[in-house]
Amino acid sequence: MDWLQIILLSLVQGLTEFLPISSSAHLILVPVFTDWPDQGLAFDVALHLGSLAAVVLYFRQELVAMLGSWCRSVSGRGTDADARLAWWVILATIPVGVAGLALKDPIESVMRSPLVLAGGLIVFGLVLGIADWRHRGSRDEYRMSWRDALWIGMAQALALIPGTSRSGITMTAALMLGLTREAAARFSFLLSIPVIVLAGGLEALDLVEKPLAVAWGDLAAGTLLAGISAYLCIHFFLAFIRRIGMQPFVIYRLMLGVALIWLFG
């Protein structure tokens, strides 16, 4: 891989993983508009590792509190807000885990066309826009119920459709359930941790079964660049939506979707 390919793919992964604009759509489109060879499974795993490191580092204090409280709740020493949030993250991950294992092959083989991406970008972009426009939420992620977590988890399973955006659909569901924009984003980011672990783990298993020569320098650069860009994305996104909301991302999704229909329709 040349450096331009490494930098572009790393930035695309780091910036779009947490924005409600579909990272899968952008990563699928890169080879459509370039003549670059496939970056390979090992590089995909490295990019996921960078994104995972970024979100864990950013929410390190919350994660430490959640883990400690969750362990205490498992041992029967009471359940507090941090423990409940940890349980809700686990509960909301189950639907996408089950759906991902059941639908992995058809999704990868049938639903990765530019027109499917365009449909996902437009339809779920409009839903996000409506949820944000009607937003009246006042709850934070610590005041969620198990039903809220389950509904958000079921919505997250729709992110298996390319173009939907995992972060976009989970934020949409959270907004509809009455969470604030910042709470919706924070819960979505916390949900990304087990999802990235599961996705990266499946890719790592495939990599072990099909061992290939590894360019360790490329992997290290991709991990570092994806991690830095993802960390900055999380930080500035949370500040951005507090003042402006989701509408700029909705407009971007609609424009990209229409462009794809025009180019490939």
Rank of each mutant, 00 (worst) to 15 (best):
residue 161 I to T: 03
residue 155 A to C: 08
residue 197 V to P: 02
residue 226 A to T: 02
residue 163 G to M: 14
residue 223 T to Y: 09
residue 162 P to F: 15
residue 184 A to T: 11
residue 155 A to M: 07
residue 171 M to W: 01
residue 196 I to Q: 14
residue 200 G to F: 14
residue 137 G to F: 08
residue 191 L to D: 10
residue 193 I to M: 14
residue 159 A to H: 05
residue 209 E to T: 03
residue 151 W to Q: 04
residue 147 R to H: 08
residue 167 S to N: 05
residue 215 A to C: 03
residue 153 G to I: 00
residue 170 T to I: 01
residue 141 E to S: 15
residue 221 A to Q: 12
residue 173 A to F: 02
residue 164 T to H: 01
residue 196 I to Y: 14
residue 139 R to C: 06
residue 148 D to E: 05
residue 195 V to I: 13
residue 207 L to G: 08
residue 193 I to W: 11
residue 184 A to E: 07
residue 180 T to G: 12
residue 197 V to Q: 03
residue 216 W to C: 11
residue 168 G to E: 04
residue 201 G to Q: 09
residue 174 A to H: 10
residue 197 V to D: 05
residue 197 V to W: 05
residue 164 T to I: 02
residue 164 T to L: 01
residue 144 M to P: 08
residue 201 G to M: 11
residue 184 A to S: 15
residue 178 G to E: 07
residue 213 A to L: 06
residue 207 L to T: 04
residue 143 R to I: 02
residue 161 I to Y: 05
residue 201 G to V: 06
residue 141 E to L: 15
residue 215 A to Y: 03
residue 154 M to L: 10
residue 220 A to I: 13
residue 171 M to T: 06
residue 180 T to L: 11
residue 217 G to A: 06
residue 164 T to G: 01
residue 210 K to L: 05
residue 140 D to Q: 14
residue 222 G to M: 13
residue 161 I to E: 00
residue 191 L to S: 08
residue 149 A to R: 04
residue 181 R to Y: 09
residue 156 Q to N: 03
residue 142 Y to S: 15
residue 167 S to K: 06
residue 225 L to E: 01
residue 155 A to S: 07
residue 167 S to A: 15
residue 160 L to W: 02
residue 211 P to E: 02
residue 214 V to F: 12
residue 194 P to K: 02
residue 163 G to V: 14
residue 154 M to E: 00
residue 204 A to V: 03
residue 160 L to K: 04
residue 190 L to T: 06
residue 172 T to S: 07
residue 158 L to I: 04
residue 217 G to Q: 11
residue 205 L to N: 04
residue 161 I to G: 00
residue 214 V to T: 14
residue 146 W to E: 13
residue 148 D to V: 07
residue 206 D to L: 09
residue 198 L to V: 02
residue 206 D to Q: 15
residue 142 Y to C: 14
residue 178 G to P: 06
residue 221 A to C: 11
residue 186 R to C: 14
residue 211 P to D: 02
residue 216 W to E: 14
residue 166 R to D: 03
residue 195 V to F: 08
residue 157 A to P: 00
residue 168 G to C: 08
residue 227 G to W: 09
residue 225 L to I: 08
residue 202 L to Y: 07
residue 143 R to M: 13
residue 171 M to S: 02
residue 174 A to S: 15
residue 219 L to Q: 12
residue 223 T to D: 10
residue 210 K to V: 02
residue 149 A to S: 09
residue 200 G to P: 11
residue 177 L to I: 13
residue 173 A to R: 02
residue 205 L to C: 03
residue 176 M to H: 11
residue 227 G to P: 10
residue 139 R to V: 05
residue 168 G to L: 10
residue 200 G to H: 09
residue 179 L to Q: 12
residue 166 R to T: 01
residue 226 A to W: 05
residue 141 E to P: 13
residue 171 M to Y: 01
residue 202 L to H: 03
residue 208 V to F: 11
residue 150 L to F: 03
residue 200 G to S: 12
residue 165 S to G: 06
residue 183 A to H: 07
residue 174 A to Q: 13
residue 217 G to F: 06
residue 148 D to L: 04
residue 149 A to T: 00
residue 165 S to R: 03
residue 139 R to L: 15
residue 191 L to V: 05
residue 175 L to P: 06
residue 151 W to S: 06
